Simulated scan of single mutants.
Amino acid sequence: MGQVTLTVAGRSHTIACRDGEEIHLQRLEGILNQHAETALAASGGLSGERTMLFLALILADLLDEAERNPPGGVSPVLLDNLADRLEAVAAALEDRGENS
């Protein structure tokens, strides 16, 4: 079993991982640290726990945005809206056909 020490927002954490996952976890550490300064500022530096909460919120917001607007794809929200509009048009056409 592997082990890696990651430093996020100035705090070190040693975690166990599968052998060979160390490089992947270090890449994730880099992603976290891209947003660590913002999280530290938002938390006021009050506690590591609060900083990690803000870091999690930042990443959750990015994930939500990516899910709503996938790169190179169509947003599921846009597809739902389009489906609703098409159903409304179909219903209007059906009503029009019945009333003729």
Rank of each mutant, 00 (worst) to 15 (best):
M1I: 09
V4L: 08
T5W: 00
L6P: 06
T7L: 00
V8G: 07
H13S: 08
H13L: 14
H13Y: 15
R18F: 05
G20C: 06
G20D: 15
G20I: 08
E21M: 12
I23M: 11
L28K: 04
L28E: 11
E29I: 01
G30I: 04
I31M: 04
L32P: 00
H35G: 05
A36E: 02
S43R: 06
S43W: 01
S43D: 06
S43A: 15
G44N: 00
G45M: 01
G45K: 03
S47V: 02
T51S: 07
F54L: 00
I58L: 05
I58F: 06
D61A: 13
D61W: 00
L62I: 06
L62W: 03
E65L: 12
A66R: 09
R68F: 01
P70Y: 12
P70A: 03
G72F: 01
G73T: 10
V74C: 11
V74D: 09
S75N: 11
S75P: 07
P76Y: 07
V77Y: 03
L78V: 10
L78C: 05
L78A: 13
A83S: 12
A83R: 12
A83T: 11
L86A: 10
A90L: 14
A90Y: 10
A91K: 14
L93M: 14
L93D: 12
E94I: 04
R96N: 13
E98G: 08
E98D: 14
E98R: 15
N99H: 09
S100V: 14
